[in-house]
């Protein structure tokens, strides 16, 4: 697996989050997206779909670990490595 493909994947996730917040232009990898309310509880399912689309991997809703979704860095580690 080439690293450029991985980068593209997490970029898609970043773009999806930024797309919900037109006032923001940047999102650093370590920013906590839950505490900063960039993704709320109802939007989370859409984040999961966005990650699935970007990674090409299906995510098991019954085995979701919230820790994997704290920031772009944790998302990248969990779903794009």
């Amino acid at each position: 697996m080439s690293s450029s493909v991985d980068t593209q994947g997490i970029d898609k996730v970043r773009d999806w989050i930024l797309g919900r917040h037109p006032d923001r232009t940047e999102l650093a990898p370590d920013v906590n997206i839950i505490e900063n309310r960039l993704v709320d509880s109802l939007a989370f399912v859409e984040l999961v779909y966005a990650i699935e689309d970007a990674s090409g991997r299906e995510i098991d809703f019954d085995a979701i670990d919230v820790e994997d979704f704290q920031s772009l860095a944790t998302i990248e580690r969990a779903f794009f490595s």
């Binding site: 839950i34 509880s41 109802l42 399912v45 979701i64 919230v66 979704f69």
Partner: peptide, 12 residues
């Protein structure tokens, strides 16, 4: 039901 089981809804 998914809403009530979602780990993301849990704090609320």
């Amino acid at each position: 039901r998914a809403l009530l089981r979602s780990p993301f809804s849990k704090p609320f």
